[in-house]
Simulated assay, not measured.
Amino acid sequence: MIVYEKDDAYVLIAQHDHARISGDLASAWRGELFGGEALRDEMTRAAYEHDASWLELDRVPLWNDAAGSPYTFRDYPGNIRFVFYERALDDLQRSSEYAALLGSILYTTLAERIRNEDTVPFVEREFARQSAIIEKLGVDVKLLQTHAKALLLCDELSLFACMEAPGTNRSRYEWFAGGFAYWFGPPGQTTLAADWTDEHTIALAPYPLMREVETSIVYREVSKADVAKWGISEAYRRATPRKHGLLFRQAR
């Protein structure tokens, strides 16, 4: 679950809904980076499916007593989440080994950011999965690295859209205040900037997409009074899902 706090409420965004935004971005990525339409389809699928592991975990949000707020994807117990990560990758691998390979690379990249006693065995198992798929498919490793970096950027741009209230100044983001690592521009162009221009529009510079991307943030706003009355799980169940329109475009 992605969570940010307001004065009187928590805003909760399910991980799979965030992944849908990253998939919408991936589907619009410039074609010359892919090496063929088949690989474009696999990368796009990896983007849409990369958080399928959270479908069950996010169905009933949990309360973090230590933080005094709902658990988020950042602090959710690793001994639980990594079981679901591996199960989702196993399921995806049965239908698309390349998409599972990309999903595994994304998971290990993110897991190493929060390295602890739970991440080490997970990362080691996923490195073994990655090596086996690369060998089996005879993967072009350089092209794979390009796809993995594009997937990571789509994931991070979607997180940018969801981690704070729409319209938040980039300087207030813990992870993204300095922009995003960018590997697709000319020499010297190593950072992409993303900024809200209004509450519905994010402008990117440089722009790695073929077109503007219209999508939406699906969320539930759960009042703190309801949490105190019913608990986070029941308060979340009672909250009405809402949709916030979102546009990614090139900075002017």
Results as ranks from 00 to 15, higher is better:
77 P>V: 05
62 L>T: 00
70 P>F: 00
56 E>R: 13
94 R>Q: 11
38 A>M: 12
53 S>Y: 14
56 E>P: 00
95 S>Y: 08
69 S>V: 00
44 T>G: 09
45 R>I: 01
50 H>M: 10
58 D>P: 04
51 D>L: 10
48 Y>W: 15
74 R>W: 05
90 D>C: 11
92 L>I: 10
69 S>K: 06
87 R>S: 10
73 F>R: 04
85 Y>S: 04
62 L>A: 10
43 M>N: 06
74 R>N: 07
52 A>L: 11
64 N>D: 15
56 E>M: 07
81 R>F: 03
88 A>T: 09
40 R>I: 04
42 E>S: 07
70 P>N: 03
65 D>N: 02
69 S>N: 01
72 T>R: 01
48 Y>E: 09
88 A>L: 09
56 E>V: 10
48 Y>S: 09
61 P>H: 04
59 R>S: 15
43 M>V: 12
69 S>Q: 13
46 A>T: 08
45 R>H: 10
76 Y>H: 09
55 L>E: 13
40 R>H: 14
78 G>I: 06
50 H>G: 08
32 E>N: 12
42 E>Y: 01
62 L>M: 09
68 G>M: 02
72 T>Q: 02
34 F>M: 15
87 R>E: 12
59 R>T: 05
59 R>Q: 12
81 R>T: 08
63 W>N: 01
95 S>P: 01
80 I>M: 04
41 D>I: 03
74 R>P: 00
42 E>N: 04
81 R>C: 02
66 A>R: 09
83 V>Q: 11
35 G>F: 06
83 V>K: 14
96 S>D: 10
96 S>V: 06
59 R>F: 08
34 F>Q: 10
90 D>Y: 07
69 S>A: 15
